[in-house]
Simulated assay, not measured.
Amino acid sequence: MEQHPLLVILGPTASGKTKLAVRLAEALHGELISADSRQVFRGMDIGTGKDLKEYKINGKQIPYHLINIRAAGEKYNVNEFKEDFYQVFEALTVKKILPVLCGGTGMYVHSIFQDHEYTAIPVNEPLREELRLKDIADLRELLKGYPAVLTQHADLSSFKRLIRAIEIAEYLSHHELVSVKRPLIKPFVVGLTSDVSLRRKRILQRMELRLEEGMIGEVETLLESGVDPEVLTFYGLEYKFVVAYLSGTLSYTELKVQLGTAICQFAKRQMTFFRKMEKDGVVIHWFDTDQDSDQLFSQVLGAYIHRKGL
C-alpha cells in the first residue's frame, strides 16, 4: 500500500512554528493543517496566536485547515481532530499537495502516529465519578476483573490513565469497536527547540504584544456573546487568566505575572510530551530556533529534501 508524505512542524509555544511551516509549504507546494486545540474556535484569535497574516508569503496566500471550524464555547477533542485531519489529508494527497501539519498540541500530533482506535470511545462521566472515589490500588484490582483482551492497552502508571483504561474496558465489554482503515503516512517530523532562557524571553514578549493587541477585549467580546466564563476558563492559559482579571480576582499586574509563569510552564510540559513521543517511537529531527530564521529554513528544507531523495 502506498505511503503518503506528511511534513510535521512541532515545538513549544512561541517557537516560530507557523512562520517556518508557511515558508516550507510555499517551497514544497504544500498546505497547512493546524494541530492546535484552541485555534479551531472562531473568535479566539489573539489569545490562541492564530496570526493569520503569517499565512501570506511573497504575495501568496498559503491555504490552511482546521482553523475557525468550531464556535467558541463548543468542545473539541482528539478523536474529532483525528477525523478532521484525515479528511483534509486525503483531499490534499489526491491533489498531490503536501500536507504540512503544524502545532503544539502534542496529543493531537501524536494521535496521527498511533493506531489507537480507542480515542473514539466516549467519556463515561457517571463511571468516572464512581472511580474517582477509589485509590490507585483499587483501580488496578478493578481492571484485573476485565478480560485480558480488553485491558492489554492499559497504562497502569497513573490514576487518570487507570480510570481511562477501565472506561475503555467497560465500553468494549458492551460495544464492538469498528475498525477504520486509514491511509499510510510517511512522516518527516521537525521539532523546534531553543535555550530555555531565550524561550522564556520570547514567551513574555509575545504575551505583552497580545495584551497590546487587545487580548482582554477579545475575551470581553466572547463573554458578551454568551460564551460561558467556565468554558473560557476550561480553554486555559490566556482565557483562564483574563477571565479571572475581568472578574476582579486578579489585578492587571497579577494577570501578567501569573499568565507569564503559566505559559512558560506550559511550554515545558509541551517539550516533555514531545520527548514522550520519541520514547513511543516517533522520530523527531530537532532544530535550534535561536539561529537566523533563513538559516533554520534552509536546514529544515535541506533535511526534508535529502530524506525524500529529491
Rank of each mutant, 00 (worst) to 15 (best):
V8N: 10
G11L: 03
P12M: 10
K17R: 04
E26Q: 12
E26N: 08
A27L: 06
G30D: 09
E31V: 02
Q39Y: 10
I57M: 09
K60D: 12
K60R: 04
I69N: 04
E74S: 13
E83Q: 13
F89L: 00
F89Q: 02
T105V: 07
Y108L: 01
H110L: 11
I112N: 04
F113W: 03
T119P: 01
D138H: 11
L142Q: 08
L142F: 07
P147Q: 09
P147T: 06
Q152K: 05
Q152V: 02
I168T: 09
I168H: 15
L172R: 11
V178K: 13
P183S: 15
G191Q: 05
R199S: 01
K201D: 10
R206Q: 14
E218N: 04
V219H: 10
L232I: 02
F234G: 07
Y235P: 00
Y235V: 00
Y239W: 02
F241L: 03
S247Q: 06
S251Y: 08
S251M: 02
E254M: 05
L255M: 07
K256S: 12
L259A: 06
G260I: 02
Q265H: 08
Q265N: 13
H285T: 09
Q291L: 07
D292H: 08
S293R: 11
S293T: 13
L301I: 05
A303W: 05
A303H: 04
G309F: 10
L310S: 06
